[in-house]
Design a protein around this nucleic acid. Structure first.
Lengths: 141, 141
DNA sequence: AGATTCTCAATGCATCTGCATCGACCGTTT
DNA sequence: AAACGGTCGATGCAGATGCATTGAGAATCT
């Protein structure tokens, strides 16, 4: 395996830095607004438009490990945002859905999250540049 | 604050995904080679070319919190890779330097880390594209 | 000098994470 | 039906993290 060029290393460093900074901005904004962390939002959002859904079907979309997801769900259930129901036809599992409070929480989080995204990306690049960036990034996945 | 456009949101998602995948690849490669995690490499590398150095002067370059860095250093010291010495002229602090084993560990990690970088970026984009990407990412920092 | 304020680095505590494993249940095979 | 391997989701444990605070020492002020 040939070792990376200087440009490749520079790009690597910037990729790591940029995404860390972007994520940090968003997490901080949520925290300062007294709201739960980003991963809660992703879960609530997923539950919102595919509902009811089983935990194992969330692993892919949320890119989360099984145990990680299990505990994330437990936290949101404890917070009253998510409801666990027995799963019809499979007594091992259960299905998840949002509570009223869960829907409200997602709604409350979006303005803060969205503003952070806008601040991180929207105000720093033109629409064309974002399109170019998105195209290049996709090639990395 | 205006909410992000669809392209902005897409770009955000891809940025987060791409960097998570890239970092994951590297961490996994190191783990599978029986080597310490990425952050150890960053510390060892920093120590290699600015030495001796004090912990607080590493916070910036490593983008680490004070307590986080303090514990990272403690781990590498325990592993015999880093040496703490009393700091001349400031009895509160100490200076850090690499041990022989530390230098060797950095050397052992680079091929694995470098290969992961090359695999994540080098084989997926042309040099021109990497340059474009690096340019766009810099604007986010 | 003495008092006050600031900086450096470590740490107690609660929470979170990764790994391995568990118990429960499903589906298939014989 | 009994046995077996596979899947679902939770959890014990060890280690890592974030937050707030500490103790020691430096710097500044009066």
């Amino acid at each position: 395996m040939t070792m990376p060029s200087a440009v490749t290393i520079l790009t690597w460093a910037r990729l790591v830095r940029a995404s860390a900074k972007a994520l940090n901005t968003a997490e901080l904004a949520l925290k300062q607004a007294g709201l739960p962390p980003l991963e809660w939002y992703e879960l609530l959002a997923e539950l919102q438009h595919k509902t009811p859904i089983r935990p194992r079907d969330l692993q892919g979309p949320l890119h989360a490990e099984q145990y990680s997801l299990s505990r994330l769900i437990a936290r949101t259930v404890r917070a009253g945002l998510v409801l666990r129901r027995p799963c019809p036809g499979d007594a091992r599992g259960h299905t998840l859905e949002l509570t009223e409070a869960g829907t409200a929480m997602r709604a409350a989080m979006w303005p803060v999250y969205g503003a952070a995204i806008e601040q991180a990306l929207g105000t720093r690049l033109t629409e064309d540049e974002r399109l170019t960036l998105a195209g290049l990034l996709q090639r990395l996945v």
